[in-house]
């Protein structure tokens, strides 16, 4: 009960190194993708790769995967939700101001 390693810390060295390799590969991929002309999709591809990398860090390095406390989940999910409100609603405004 008092041993921290007994709850939610089943992460092995193998998974840490796999995530590390994936993060480095993602970095290489985003640089390669930036040098290919995808038109308007360049930004989307860059953001998708960045979000995938951020998720890998959060889930495996920050141990969100396997976290059981409901309060912690509430904090994380509401953080993302409020960030989306900030970004999406702001862009819904500025992005549609074709007159200015």
């Amino acid at each position: 009960m008092s041993d921290q390693s007994q709850h939610g810390h089943s992460s092995s060295l193998t998974s840490y190194f796999a995530v590390w390799i994936a993060l480095l590969a993602g970095t290489a991929l985003t640089v390669v993708a930036a040098h290919i002309n995808l038109g308007p999709f360049n930004a989307a591809v860059a953001l998708i790769i960045a979000t995938t990398k951020a998720l890998l860090v959060a889930l495996f390095f920050m141990h969100l995967k396997g976290a059981s406390e409901k309060l912690l989940k509430l904090v994380v999910i509401s953080t993302i939700a409020f960030l989306f409100i900030l970004l999406v609603l702001s862009m819904a405004d500025y992005g549609t101001r074709s007159w200015s």
Binding site: T30, A34, H35, I36, I49, A50, A58
Partner: peptide, 17 residues
């Protein structure tokens, strides 16, 4: 680290092609 993961493509990699 996550902040930098977003800063890198947004600041360094705009329209390189």
């Amino acid at each position: 680290d996550i902040v930098w993961i977003y800063l890198f493509p947004l600041l360094y990699l705009i329209d390189l092609r």
